[in-house]
Simulated scan of single mutants.
Amino acid sequence: MGGSEMTHLIRLDQWFGAPVSAGFTNREGGVSEGNYESLNLGFHVSDREEDVQINRERVAAMLDVQKSDVLFGEQVHGNAVAVVTKDTPRRALYDAIAAVDGLVTTDRRIALGVLAADCVPLLFADAYAGVIGVAHAGWRGATSGIVSEVVRQMLGLFAKPERIRVAIGPAIRGCCYEVDAPVVRSARTAYEQMGKPMPVWRRSSNHIGAVMMDLPRICHDELRTLGVKEEHILDVSICTSCMPGFFSHRRDHGTTGRQAGLIRLRGV
């Protein structure tokens, strides 16, 4: 796994099956300090760039690739998805694919990464077709179809819904995620488009009209409407806000790092 500093990775290789390697990081095993201690993987959070570079090198080693071969999206809280290869141009500032929240590839020379610190990181794979994907789903992305768009792009590369496996990573959960009425309206619209009733979320005890939204549940329900089998959806059931060992944008008032979901297809 690239050394003892990476022993806290949530490995999912066996669940996805050969030839996929995948997992979710937590905040342990890196060199960042202060609010970013220690395995911060985000360049855009005011951490020292040289520390982030070291952290990304350690993460790349887990999947037996070079740091430059792990591709991330810029993550702008939208629903755009890019099909990428090793040669896809990146936005220089953050070393990321510009203006997308999802990535899909069949290129075995690279790994895909997704950053999060409360938003939902999702990993996708159809191992038989040799197609993988990642998605970053905040409330805007989750309610505007980022999950559907990743699946749609994978189907264009000969994946099948009934073969796709998806891992839902550490994210803020209904225990901690208070949202206001406009966010609830967006979720209601998303469920109407799914043809499903919106879940009855617990009302907030702090603000009138606010509810405790289960963001990963929205992603799960959309996957089911797309034909992904229930037994092919793995939710790690970790809340980044109230469970220790993870970065949380909301809990830490915006000054925090980013953990990652990572996936690659190994060569045959």
Rank of each mutant, 00 (worst) to 15 (best):
G227L: 10
R264A: 03
T189N: 11
Q259M: 12
G17R: 13
R91C: 08
S144E: 14
S148P: 01
D69E: 15
A171V: 08
V52L: 07
V100S: 11
G42R: 05
V184E: 05
V134P: 08
A127E: 10
S4E: 06
I110T: 08
I208K: 15
P216V: 11
D13A: 09
P170W: 03
G73Q: 14
A135W: 02
V211E: 12
P199G: 09
A116Q: 08
V150Q: 12
L41Y: 00
F247S: 03
G78K: 07
G145D: 11
E57G: 08
E222P: 05
S144W: 00
C242V: 01
F158N: 10
S68E: 15
V268K: 02
I97P: 05
D13V: 12
M194Y: 15
Y36T: 00
G245S: 02
S241M: 06
C239S: 15
L63G: 02
A127F: 01
L115D: 04
V228A: 07
W201H: 14
Q75Y: 01
L234N: 09
A18K: 15
C219G: 14
M194A: 11
E33C: 00
R250K: 05
K229C: 13
N206S: 14
A142V: 09
V134A: 09
R109M: 03
I110L: 04
A260Q: 06
E37F: 01
N26V: 00
